[in-house]
């Protein structure tokens, strides 16, 4: 474990807290993409199957938190706050994201075992899971400030894994090329959002797309 990964996981927890806080205080899930949230549950369920045969206090606790919280978010979006969910602006074709991740998982897993193929699927799916959310923000042309903080924290989580991978490569010649490639792609997908977030939201202005 290193400070970068710890900070990354902390940002991940913060993003989930911001999301749930926003939904429960505003009693609304407006501006949040259900498709992205559903993809995240799929990412966690397919990646954390090793909960059943490995145990590490930190990792197992975090895995349970991520699976539980994303299931809870989906419950909120399909239950109490369903009236505030507008599926007409959540139109990204997730079948291509799932299909692409599945193909890559079948072609290039570390090992052709069910657990490893699912893990690889999850890594690739996570790299694109934010696209429906970013696409929705693009379509509406703006986003609530709290939503931009959520997206920023979510992007910062995996961005911080990059120095973690560099650190681990330099200190222990460990490296996980699949996670690194997918993690870099994931972070690049946030880059225009990060730019607008930095130039707009952090200057105290509303998040509006040019």
């Amino acid at each position: 474990m290193n400070i970068f990964r710890l900070a990354g996981d902390l940002f991940h927890l913060i993003s989930i807290f911001i999301l749930i806080h926003k939904m429960t205080t505003s009693k609304s899930c407006s501006g949040i993409s259900f498709k992205s949230q559903a993809l995240y549950l799929l990412v966690y369920v397919t990646r954390y199957l090793d909960l059943f045969w490995t145990f590490a206090l930190y990792n197992s606790t975090m895995k349970i938190i991520f699976i539980g919280s994303s299931a809870y978010v989906l419950h909120l979006m399909t239950g109490p706050f369903k009236p505030t969910h507008d599926p007409n602006i959540d139109t990204f074709k997730v079948r291509y994201l799932i299909g692409g991740a599945a193909i890559l998982a079948l072609l290039f897993p570390y090992k052709w075992t069910p657990a490893e193929v699912l893990w690889t699927f999850s890594i690739w799916l996570e790299s694109v899971a934010i696209l429906p959310q970013l696409f929705m923000v693009q379509r509406t042309g703006a986003a609530e400030t709290i939503t931009t903080h959520y997206i920023f924290a979510l992007g910062a989580y995996r961005a911080l894994y990059i120095p973690n991978w560099i650190y681990r490569y330099l200190t222990s010649t460990f490296w996980d090329p699949l996670s690194i490639i997918a993690g870099v792609i994931q972070t690049v997908l946030y880059s225009d959002f990060f730019y607008i977030y930095y130039t707009k939201v952090l200057q105290g202005r509303k998040f509006e797309l040019p």
Binding site: R5, K63, Y110, K111, F174, P177, L178
Partner: peptide, 10 residues
């Protein structure tokens, strides 16, 4: 540790 022998990152 070789890849694929269990993943220790989230």
């Amino acid at each position: 540790k070789k890849d694929g022998e269990g993943h220790d990152e989230l």
